[in-house]
Simulated scan of single mutants.
Amino acid sequence: MADKCTIPVIDLHNLPNQLPELISACENWGCFRLINHHEILSTKLMLEMKKVVRSLLDLPVEIKRRSSDAIAGSGYMAPSAKNPLYETLALYDMARSGDVERFCQELDATHDQREIIMRYAEAVHELFMRIAKKLAEGLGVKRGDIGFENWPCEFRFNKYNFIPESVGSPGVQLHTDSAFLTILQDDESVGGLEVMDKTGKFITINPWPDTLLVNLGDMATVRL
């Protein structure tokens, strides 16, 4: 699959040796595919989390609306005139067990669902810290100057409500992520994701099962 991937591929096991490639991917593309992350985030947990996400987003709207807004954009967002095919559930900080527990309580998540969400949140946060520290290292940022350890890490579950008549329509408006780093588990079989290259051309990102997509947000600027 690596030879068919349209964006750079970073091997987490080989990250010390791939540090120049990681920096190049971030500077030239702003995103990359992450492979061999299973020591932290296993295939089994990824599949379990997808089942939980589907079941929570299939809940009645009146239950999903219980999910509260810690900040604008967290909680439940229903389809809107701007994004008619898109809905999402989100919690403000996956690194805080209290935030995760409150999110689960609001949605009446089962014990098993809560366990999966907790384990998945911990694994993704660990991945975030690993990648962010390597980025800082590759850019020459001194360890004492790294301040992202206590940053909140939003946890978002997205659903695109496509029907045959809407296939080909944008799932969500053109945007950049407002945060620092996004780690995305995309659909294993359905494509549609696109990124813009340096020329302004949109590049299709093909599905690649059992991998993660990482992209930089608006806050990913280093001042030396």
Rank of each mutant, 00 (worst) to 15 (best):
W208D: 00
D186C: 10
P20M: 00
N36A: 06
D177W: 04
A109N: 05
G73S: 05
I163E: 14
L59K: 12
S68G: 07
N150C: 10
Q113N: 11
I40D: 02
A109E: 02
I163D: 09
P207F: 08
I63K: 15
F32D: 09
I116K: 10
G191I: 06
D177A: 04
S97L: 15
I63T: 15
N83P: 05
I203M: 07
K142T: 06
Q185A: 11
F128N: 12
E39S: 14
M77C: 08
V190K: 13
G138V: 04
K50F: 03
E106W: 06
T221F: 01
N14I: 00
R119M: 14
D197N: 15
K64F: 03
F157P: 00
A70K: 15
D177F: 03
F180G: 07
G200A: 06
S42I: 02
D187F: 14
I10S: 01
L57A: 06
M1I: 03
D93L: 04
A72W: 00
W208G: 00
D69A: 15
V195T: 09
V214A: 14
P209A: 11
D3R: 12
H38D: 06
Y76P: 05
A90P: 06
L139K: 01
H175T: 05
G171T: 11
I10W: 01
H125W: 08
Q173I: 11
D58N: 15
G192A: 10
E39T: 09
Q173N: 13
E39W: 02
M49S: 04
D3M: 08
A72H: 06
R143Q: 15
Y160S: 02
T211M: 07
L15P: 01
L216R: 03
A132C: 02
V53T: 14
S178L: 13
K82F: 12
D93R: 02
E115W: 02
I205C: 11
E194M: 13
I117R: 10
Y86G: 02
S97F: 10
C104H: 03
D11I: 03
S55N: 12
V214C: 15
A72F: 05
I131Q: 03
